[in-house]
Simulated scan of single mutants.
Amino acid sequence: MDVARVWQGLDEPLKAFHALRALASYAPEEATRPKVRAVASELLVTNPEMPGLRRFAQRTGAVV
């Protein structure tokens, strides 16, 4: 989660998304936490065309 936030802060949305996916892969129970959903939502607002992001956001509960 921290790595995703760092990449997001450095304006590296793809790397932030990869970090979120890694988190979900290694600790699926963490992927639905509010902080993860918030980052996924923010990434989706700024990068709606990113492949796989909308599906990830839906799966984690960031969007319906």
Rank of each mutant, 00 (worst) to 15 (best):
M1P: 12
M1Y: 10
D2S: 05
D2V: 01
D2L: 00
V3S: 09
V3H: 02
A4V: 03
W7G: 06
Q8Y: 03
G9F: 00
G9H: 14
L10I: 05
D11F: 05
D11W: 06
D11C: 07
E12A: 02
E12W: 08
E12Q: 05
E12G: 01
K15C: 07
A16T: 07
A16F: 05
F17I: 01
F17K: 00
F17S: 00
F17D: 03
H18P: 01
H18T: 01
H18F: 02
H18Y: 08
L20Q: 06
L20P: 04
L20E: 13
R21S: 09
R21G: 00
L23C: 02
L23E: 00
Y26C: 01
A27E: 12
A27D: 05
P28Q: 08
P28I: 10
E29P: 04
E29L: 14
E30N: 12
E30R: 14
E30M: 12
R33M: 11
R33Q: 15
R33I: 15
R33T: 15
P34Q: 13
K35R: 10
K35L: 13
V36H: 04
R37H: 10
R37D: 13
A38Y: 06
A38C: 11
A38V: 06
V39F: 00
V39I: 06
V39P: 02
A40L: 03
A40G: 09
S41R: 06
S41I: 03
S41E: 09
S41N: 11
E42L: 05
E42R: 08
E42S: 04
L43A: 02
L43M: 03
L44W: 13
L44Q: 14
L44R: 12
V45W: 09
V45R: 11
T46I: 11
N47C: 13
N47P: 11
E49K: 15
E49V: 14
E49N: 14
E49H: 15
M50I: 11
M50D: 14
P51N: 08
P51Y: 10
P51D: 14
P51H: 08
G52C: 12
L53K: 03
R54D: 11
R55Q: 15
F56A: 13
F56E: 03
F56L: 12
R59M: 13
R59D: 13
T60N: 12
T60L: 03
G61C: 05
A62F: 06
A62M: 08
A62R: 01
V63L: 12
V64L: 15
